[in-house]
């Protein structure tokens, strides 16, 4: 065999093994992803089962309702206010092109209660709550507080996960409702101060075109997003690695994963509720 042919054969072999390595890496990543989905699904199922069986830590539930619900009100309210205002401006700017400025109040209302209210509240709660839950539980794991709970005959799933998930599932729909109202108010303020709407016409258009299911679907989405946020925060905290780096990674993963899951769940729920 000539030196040139041998070189070509060696190069082909190298390319072949590089392709195999890439394929193996892809296989490993897929396997890890599927394993993570499996673990997370099992954790979600266990949480649901524990939510139905006592003991229930009502004091913890109350504390979490305060921490997740009440303390998230300012950030959700401010986000909704600005989003409602910006939405009114955008719809007006688009509507002017085909003389449909009058739809601003109804589109702001429908857009807020069906989509932006729940999604914005969900994302804000994900940023604020998923991170803090993951950091708190991760730190508890690193400092052996989870082990201490077990030695004190207390199941961390029941004491930590269930109250947080239940509180978020109950509190986020309320936050969505409050966010919806504030977002519509933001649109109203922009409508009457910047876009020339009369107060009465704006309010009538808002109320007349809004249906019960528009609001209810947003609240259901809120409950689903609350469940996702708290569950992801708890799961990432429980899976946290050692040291500050492990807790930091758990916190980051909790926020990113819950945000992605909220957006995916939002699409699926919209398909379910409103598909033609």
């Amino acid at each position: 065999m000539s030196a040139g042919a041998a070189g070509q054969q060696q190069q082909r072999r190298r390319q072949g093994s590089a392709a195999l390595r890439a394929l193996a890496a892809l296989g490993r990543a897929t396997r890890h992803l599927l394993a993570a989905i499996g673990h997370f699904s099992r954790y979600a199922l266990l949480t649901l089962m524990h939510m139905l069986r006592g003991p229930f830590y009502l004091r913890e539930l109350g504390a979490q309702l305060y921490a997740i619900g009440y303390l998230s009100l300012p950030v959700v309210g401010l986000t909704a206010l600005f989003t409602g205002g910006a939405l009114a401006l955008q719809i007006y700017a688009g509507g002017v092109r085909f003389n449909a400025e009058a739809v601003v109040p109804s589109i702001v209302a429908i857009g807020m209660v069906r989509e932006l209210g729940p999604v914005m509240a969900g994302l804000m709660v994900a940023a604020r709550v998923a991170s803090s839950i993951a950091a708190e539980i991760g730190t508890m794991k690193v400092t052996e507080q989870l082990d201490a709970l077990v030695t004190l005959s207390t199941d961390p799933m029941k004491y930590l996960t269930v109250p947080r998930v239940a509180a978020a599932t109950l509190a986020v729909p309320v936050l969505v409702g409050v966010g919806d109202a504030i977002g519509i108010f933001g649109g109203y303020m922009v409508g009457i101060t910047r876009l020339g709407f009369s107060e009465v016409a704006y309010l009538r258009n808002t109320v007349d075109f809004l249906e019960f299911w528009d609001v209810a679907s947003g609240l259901v989405k809120g409950a689903a997003f609350g469940f996702i946020v708290a569950l992801t925060g708890c799961y990432c905290g429980m899976q946290s690695g050692r040291g500050a780096q492990g807790v930091g990674r758990a916190t980051k993963t909790a926020v990113v994963a819950s945000a992605v899951m909220i957006l995916a769940a939002n699409y699926l729920l919209t398909e379910l509720f409103f598909s033609a």
Partner: peptide, 16 residues
């Protein structure tokens, strides 16, 4: 577990 008590190395007191 009710029969056991444990003192952890770092105390492991519940911060909250």
């Amino acid at each position: 577990l009710a029969r056991f008590g444990m003192l952890f190395q770092g105390g492991a007191l519940f911060d909250s």
